[in-house]
Write a protein that binds this DNA or RNA. Structure first.
Length: 559
RNA sequence: GCCCCCAUCGUCUAGGGGACUAGGACACCGGCUUUUCAAGCCGGCGACACGGGUUCGAAUCCCGUUGGGGGCGCCA
């Protein structure tokens, strides 16, 4: 049992689970499962200013949605808890005390402003600053006095002054020179540990054997190893994962959403489609933040971005796991896809279930190169995933989708109807696409919105030939004796043949009348499902709008 | 600026000195199918960043250049 593999995922509760975090969690999960070990979840909530209420719940929900269940951690407990760093403060205090007593750490009293000034003075650009360690360390009395004077008191770790070599299972041995290493802070002035300190203590306490984390942590690792050596703790096996980038090569981050919305808003304002004041109103934040955001100086809250995106009629790029859920991706597809970002089994296989990944995974097959996140390929995977899933699976996935979109027009439908829609929509790429394709069938007639361009193209163009067809079809359909999809197909095809028209010339006007758009399942199936009454009512409704003499509105665009 | 990491089709990758006229997937292009959007089927385009070595032989090993990424916080 001595070599039981124990891995962990240790997020801080600042929002939804990010795609990069999800990949890190997945790899840790897979390694533990592959070796019959334990996967631990720990909440790193040591930054009181960054913790966001409700974020932890979202994080756990996202992990569960992906199917990454943890053996120890929040909600499940375990022998090495508590699994919240905020509940482990005595442990860090004890370790810090020991380091202070042994002269391996010391107090420091600079304010942030003083440190900023020192950094600026250090180098031309202020980079590469190293804290000037005092010849003799301040005493407990000095620390007390500083506190009494209202100065900040932190504890810094005395780096041993030697080079450090990080043994990394992916990158090999990476040596960082002593000159690069700084006496970093281990206890903040609020008494809480920094990440570097807490992570070392906790990983040891929780018997973590393997640490898989993003490559952005590589340069921190000497600090961690030094700390482990000073505290007499073992060094776990490290594996620094390549980073996931956007298609443009920039780091994939939540800023991407800000960027997209900011660009769209500028275009809309330039085009006169929206004005500054209205945009601010939609965003619902304070004017100062909004102004800063427009100048790329700040980020907007997620819900503000969502509201703006809706008004601007743009899709937000998916960044968080929750975004993919909301866009109608299957969790097993997301897992499959991100597993292939930086890992491959070495053959041509690309499709895996979570269990299959757990069986095939190995540290040795993780690559070194950063990967760009290709949404097109994910979409293709999702299309295959939906096409290849058992009907019951898609039904369950739809129910989950409705949990995120309770207002979906499809949400109230029974399983049998939903199953029918799934059949009719074979080939859709996402659950959202299925919703968009079928939604219009299940909204009230009054709520139908007409695609203006489609109306022009298929109804009004060429001396309103489309309107004529629609008028005729209204009568034909009213008299149809068999309102099944088969019967309707006969009637409609028959009409097209008689009048020497392609089916499209007949189907599209009907489709627009009954759905408002050019997209729906087979036209026969669509109106069969809609029923005669609604179909005729919707055709009448559109005809009334398009024929002023019938007393309809001037333009379909106002609908 | 300094330090670290990386480098095969547009993208994710296979490849670990001869099996490479470099394989797969997505995207793209062309065709077929077609009542819309998708899906599907067939075919095609397309890469070893560059320059030096080592070697009988290099995509594979070494060095340099260039390019990309990361780090340089009382954030994690």
């Amino acid at each position: 049992m001595a070599d039981l593999v124990r891995t962990r995922f240790a997020p801080s509760p600042t929002g939804y689970l990010h795609i990069g975090g999800a990949r890190t969690a997945l790899f840790n999960y897979l390694l533990a499962r592959r070796h019959g070990g334990r996967f631990v979840l720990r909440i790193e909530d040591t930054d009181q200013t960054r913790n966001i209420a409700g974020a932890e719940g979202k994080l756990l929900e996202d992990l569960r949605w992906l199917g990454l269940d943890w053996d120890e951690g929040p909600e499940v407990g375990g022998p090495f808890g508590p699994y919240y760093q905020s509940q482990r403060l005595e442990r860090y205090e004890a370790c810090a005390r020991r380091l202070l007593e042994e002269g391996r750490a010391y107090y420091a009293f600079e304010t942030r402003e003083e440190l900023d000034a020192m950094r600026k003075a250090a180098g031309g650009s202020g980079k590469g600053f190293r804290y000037p360690r005092p010849a003799s360390f301040p005493s407990e009395a000095d620390a007390r006095r500083a506190r009494d004077e209202g100065r900040p008191v932190v504890v810094r770790f005395k780096m041993p002054g030697c080079d450090f070599t990080v043994p990394d299972r992916i990158l090999g041995e990476v040596t960082i020179g002593a000159d690069e290493l700084d006496d970093f802070v281990i206890v903040k002035s609020d008494g809480w540990p920094t990440y570097h300190f807490a992570v070392v203590v906790d990983d040891a306490d929780m018997r973590i054997t393997h640490v898989l984390r993003g490559q952005e942590h590589l340069m921190n690792t000497p600090n961690h190893i030094a700390l482990q050596q000073a505290l007499g703790l073992p060094t776990p096996i490290y594996a620094h994962l390549p980073i996931i980038l956007n298609m443009d090569g920039s780091k994939m981050s939540k800023r991407e959403k800000d960027k997209v919305v900011r660009g769209a808003l500028r275009g809309a304002i330039d085009a006169g489609r929206i004005d500054e004041a209205r945009a601010l109103d939609v965003a619902g934040c304070d004017a100062e933040t909004f102004a800063a955001w427009r100048k790329k100086k700040a980020q907007l809250p997620a819900d503000a971005l969502r509201r703006l995106a809706r008004v601007l009629e743009i899709e937000l790029p998916e960044i968080d796991i929750h975004d993919f859920r909301a866009s109608g991706y299957l969790p097993e597809v997301v897992v499959n896809f991100i597993a292939l970002l930086g890992w491959s089994a070495g053959d041509d296989r690309e499709k895996y279930t979570l269990a299959e990944l757990a069986a095939a995974f190995s540290l040795e097959r993780i690559g070194k190169t950063n990967a760009r996140f290709d949404r097109d390929k994910l979409l293709a995977f999702n299309t295959d995933g939906i096409a290849g899933a058992a009907p019951g699976r898609i039904l369950a996935a739809l129910r989950d989708y409705f949990a995120v979109h309770p207002d979906s027009p499809l949400a109230p439908l029974d399983d049998a109807t939903l199953a029918r829609l799934v059949e009719l929509c074979a080939g859709v790429r996402t659950l959202r696409q299925l919703e968009q394709k079928c939604g219009a069938m299940f909204v009230d007639d009054e709520a139908l919105r007409y695609d203006e361009a489609a109306v022009r193209k298929f109804l009004l163009k060429g001396e309103a030939a489309g309107v004529g067809v629609l008028r005729n079809m209204r009568d034909v359909l009213a008299k149809a004796s068999d309102w099944s999809s088969g019967g309707l197909e006969q009637v409609i095809r028959g009409y097209a043949r008689e009048h020497g028209l392609g089916l499209g010339k007949v189907a599209q006007p009907i489709r627009i009348a009954v759905t408002g758009t050019t997209v729906s399942p087979s036209i026969f199936e669509t109106i069969a499902l809609l029923g005669r009454e609604k179909t005729l009512a919707r055709i009448d409704r559109l005809l009334a709008r398009l024929e002023p003499d019938a007393g309809g509105a001037q333009s379909a665009a106002t609908a």
